[in-house]
Nucleic acid binder design. Structure first.
Length: 399
DNA sequence: ATTAATGATTAAAC
DNA sequence: GTTTAATCATTAAT
């Protein structure tokens, strides 16, 4: 099928075997054979009286074959090059490629899924959101922190708390980037290697550029799985880091003494309605050096814990009540001044120091002098009956 | 080493 | 949205 005579078109050739015999590259083969052809007379075909001569030929051939391995590399290279330069080579190449294409050898991975891996996209987005994949400057860290603190509005302060986190995040980012770089380098290296190899082989083998491209795609897909793994583990590390460093429960610091003092002051001076407004919260947050969320948390905790065991807080209540009273007395000499305490039963205590007898709270009968007691309005259902001080609270806030 | 105190988180209710 | 009640996880105190 490949021996179409007109295709060769090389007139002077002997017309055998695609006419390659006159190519310089083929001389090697000829040269192997020719010596054994001791005078291509017809006598060779006769083979008369040549039993031992044939044996000698075989020996010669073997000898020649053995010498092939001794041929210098340059020589072989030259032959190859000569073969590549043959004018029939492109035609033969294309024909062989066509055959290969038809036999489906090269179309095993025909379906080129150009679809991006959704998981990889997801990981990319996550890393970007965490500031790992983004720019390596402060902007990235800031973005990470802002993203991390998105759950609670606690961005203004606790930068000290975040510094550790930032350091670790930077470490992760560095590792990630170096690994990614290594990965990319290895990928390109391998790809170029394979491409060079295939290109080289395309001289002697029907390998189309299309196939090379496809091969590159396959390689990239393989490497992509590695990339996915890298990104996944990075994500995991970031998540662990976040859960460990940004979960404030693990980094709880007690408030400063003065902060607690200020909060308690407000709480006990608004005991009848210890629900600071937004403005009051802001004020408290500013004066105590904590966030509004922390103020809210503190009041939430305080209310529930106070309500749960009023007796336990009696001393504290008296303490702050006295403090407030003293402040009020300093500010205003009148003993009947309605101070800011919510409970009417408290304000009359000129010396609020002996209300420390603390009975069990849940007892049905509370026959004791309540030093400072909120009327149980705000602590609705569970509030102990606390028969003392049935006055409804009304004298209230200083605002 | 235990325990109490405390700030933060969570689910559920409003 | 906030608040309650329970709970967690850490810190301070015993």
């Amino acid at each position: 099928m490949l021996q179409q005579q007109p295709l060769t078109g090389n007139g002077p050739s002997s017309g055998r075997g695609l006419g390659l015999s006159d190519h310089p590259g083929m001389h090697a083969l000829n040269s192997v054979q020719q010596p054994s052809q001791h005078r291509s007379d017809d006598s060779a075909l006769e083979g008369t009286e040549n039993g031992h001569e044939n044996r000698r030929d075989i020996g010669d051939i073997l000898q020649q074959i053995m010498t092939i391995t001794d041929q210098s590399l340059d020589e072989a290279q030259a032959k190859k090059h000569a073969l590549n330069c043959h004018r029939m080579k492109p035609a033969l190449f294309s024909v062989l490629c066509e055959i290969k294409e038809k036999t489906g050898l090269s179309m095993r991975n025909a379906q080129e899924d150009e679809s991006q891996d959704p998981q990889l996209v997801r990981l990319d987005n996550m890393l970007l959101a965490e500031g790992v994949a983004g720019p390596e400057k402060g902007g990235g860290a800031a973005a990470a922190v802002s993203a991390a603190t998105s759950s609670g509005g606690m961005s203004p302060d606790s930068s000290l708390e975040h510094s550790d986190y930032k350091i670790k995040l930077t470490q992760i980012r560095c590792i990630y980037h170096t690994e990614l770089e290594k990965y990319e380098q290895a990928c390109t290296e391998f790809t170029t290697h394979v491409m060079n190899l295939l290109r080289e082989q395309s001289r002697t083998r029907p390998v189309t550029p299309r196939e090379i491209e496809r091969m590159v795609g396959i390689i990239h897909r393989k490497f992509s799985t590695i990339q996915t793994q890298l990104k996944q583990s990075t994500c995991e590390a970031v998540m662990i880091l976040r859960s460990r460093f940004l979960d404030a429960r693990r980094k709880r610091r007690n408030f400063s003494k003065q902060a607690t003092e200020g909060l308690n002051e407000y709480f006990y001076s608004h005991l009848s309605n210890p629900y600071p407004s937004e403005e009051a919260k802001e004020e408290l947050a500013k004066s105590c050096g904590i966030t509004i969320s922390q103020v809210s948390n503190w009041f939430g905790n305080k209310r529930i814990r106070y309500k749960k065991n009023i007796g336990k807080f009696q001393e504290e209540a008296n303490l702050y009540a006295m403090k407030t009273a003293l402040v009020v007395r300093q500010g205003n000499d009148s003993p009947h001044t309605p101070n800011s305490t919510g409970s009417g039963s408290f304000s009359l205590s000129g010396s609020a120091d002996l209300f420390l007898g603390v009975p069990p709270v849940n007892g049905d009968q509370a026959a004791y002098p309540m030093g400072v007691q909120a009327n149980g309005n705000w602590n609705g259902r569970n509030s102990p009956p606390a028969g003392a001080s049935p006055h409804s609270d009304h004298s209230d806030n200083s605002d």
